[in-house]
Write a protein that binds this DNA or RNA. Structure first.
Lengths: 109, 109
DNA sequence: GATTTTATTTACAAAAGTGTTGATAAAAAC
DNA sequence: GTTTTTATCAACACTTTTGTAAATAAAATC
């Protein structure tokens, strides 16, 4: 029941972290989502989502190193756990099972 | 923003209605979900979800005919609207875009 | 060292989704 | 006509997700 499901934003955040591999931090995740899904997201909403996903065991995190760019303070880097990856994949597999039995041609009326 | 997103259950309900074509009513939808996603759902939760999806414009409904089976009172039949189908498809397209850039082999550690 | 920029963190508020209960209804069976 | 079965509907409560605001911190630039 409650706790293992992903919210819509949470799933996008998790997918972004997976796609960004070892350079996933809040700002990059936000850019990733705004680029792929056509949607504005508040940076604090991203942070809140990242922390929640970590609490749930879908993500791990560690502090990265500071860069020599102005304002380049160190970032918190997130990575997808095995459990997170499994959850993501299962959600997608279930949906694909449904799509497999939807008569798409007649549906696109 | 708020209003156009699908909850996790809502998406499964919408996909079920699509897959069931012209025989989608609450009980059948529930069976469909319990069969494909490995998950128990309260029948009233299905009803609530169906009504909400209709309010949002993702579903249409009409009363079907009674059958000559014991307890076979007429069912409310739901169908996916063009808008609902479009929403469903877009959500899936966005996710597939992410999956396309996830290095899956190294991720399945 | 004051300012600007990038970034995190915490706490709270608001919105949305999900679940539960109880009432009602209509059909066939007895 | 009472019972059993299948089904809808409505109201409410609960939980979770999402968004916002304010505080803090660390880097480079000036």
């Amino acid at each position: 029941m409650r706790g293992t499901y992903l919210g819509e934003l949470e799933e996008l955040v998790l997918l972004s972290v997976a796609a960004l591999v070892d350079s996933a931090y809040a700002v990059a995740v936000r850019a990733e989502i705004e680029g792929r899904a056509n949607r504005k997201v508040n940076i604090s909403a991203i942070h809140a989502s990242l922390y929640r996903l970590e609490d749930k065991g879908f993500l791990d995190s560690h502090m990265g190193e500071a860069t020599n760019k102005r304002g380049g303070k160190s970032k918190r880097i997130f990575t997808v756990t095995t459990y997170g990856y499994k959850t993501l994949k299962e959600a997608q597999t279930v949906r694909q099972s449904f799509w497999g039995s939807i008569p798409q041609l007649s549906a696109q009326k």
